[in-house]
Design a protein around this nucleic acid. Structure first.
Length: 293
DNA sequence: CCGCGGGCCTGAGAGC
DNA sequence: TGCTCTCAGGCCCGCG
């Protein structure tokens, strides 16, 4: 489920209860996630303080006082839920919710501020890993990630450089985390529509000869940044799994222009096209064949 | 190295 | 109602 805007929404929900707090108790109820949790997972966290909670692409990174970093990935169906310690002021509800255990609650963090953070993941494509901070540069999960799309360094020249010589489709290229990190199926479709570029176009065609950025690359960079910023402002998109850490839904699914809208009119002003669904690399692509060229 | 297809898991929804 | 089938927002691996 979660692409960059959903992960960022989760980060913003977790930061207030995790940053500056210590892990009082850590329960790994199920360790057989996407990659197995280490046997000493709880031990290495308990008593440890979270100095900061960051994000890289679709990974959350908790910077720990011990010098380790806790890496977390939501996979397709992962979510975090926060129960605030302050709920203790309404004991009935608090104790009820505190004791409620849902299916697929795999990891539970009890923080020393009284908050409880629960990781839930039905499909178990998500996982967590603890790595020493000085080895973060060599971390295989992070090492080959491309630029952060909302960072200043991500511009038309960088995107054109990544797409240069690529024979694959623009859709595949944007889904490739090595070229730009954090987009998934939804936001790739949405960004391409905003940039009026066809998902079927060869990726190399947004780089000019010699790989110089084109006006198309410029439009695409602007579209990517805009759609991600809009989605973050809306708390992400909730199709099936994504929840904010307070359990509320994100809102951005109401603003989709093409995703899951096959057969509906293209929202581009003056365009009479109809949104189509095609399959690329075994995944659905939604686009308008009239205004996306 | 490149590009593609398969597989990992469970649950929701469609169709019968 | 209940069964079966398909599909789902990510990512890694192996193949040619």
């Amino acid at each position: 489920m979660p692409e960059l805007p959903e992960v960022e929404t989760v980060r913003r929900g977790l930061a207030p209860v995790m940053e500056g707090a210590r892990f009082r108790k850590v329960e790994a109820r199920r360790g057989d996630l996407r990659w197995p949790l280490p046997k000493d997972f709880a031990q290495r966290l308990e008593g440890n303080r979270v100095n900061g909670l960051g994000r890289r692409a679709k990974y959350l990174l908790a910077d720990l006082a011990s010098g380790d970093v806790l890496l977390m990935h939501l996979g397709m169906s992962g979510s975090f839920r926060v129960l605030h310690g302050s709920r203790a002021k309404t004991p009935g509800r608090y104790h009820h919710e505190r004791s409620k255990q849902r299916a697929h609650d795999h990891v539970v963090f009890q923080m020393d501020n009284g908050s409880i953070v629960t990781f839930n993941d039905p499909r178990r494509f998500g996982s967590m890993k603890i790595v020493p901070r000085e080895k973060l540069d060599e971390e295989p999960l992070l090492r080959s990630l491309g630029p952060e799309p909302l960072g200043n360094e991500f511009d038309a020249a960088m995107l054109a450089g990544g797409c240069k010589g690529k024979k694959t489709s623009l859709k595949s290229a944007l889904s490739d985390q090595r070229i730009v990190a954090g987009l998934g199926n939804i936001y790739v479709c949405e960004a391409l529509h905003r940039a009026r570029l066809s998902p079927k176009r060869r990726a190399s065609t947004i780089a000019g000869r010699s790989g110089a950025p084109t006006e198309r690359a410029q439009r695409l960079v602007e579209a990517i940044k805009a759609v991600l910023q809009d989605a973050i402002a809306a708390g992400g998109s909730s199709l099936r799994d994504h929840r904010r850490t307070d359990g509320e839904l994100g809102d951005f699914q109401h603003n989709f222009r093409v995703y899951d809208r096959a057969g509906k009119p293209c929202p581009t002003p003056g365009c009479n096209g109809v949104i189509r669904r095609i399959v690329q690399s075994a995944r659905s692509t939604f686009f308008c064949p009239v205004c996306q060229k």
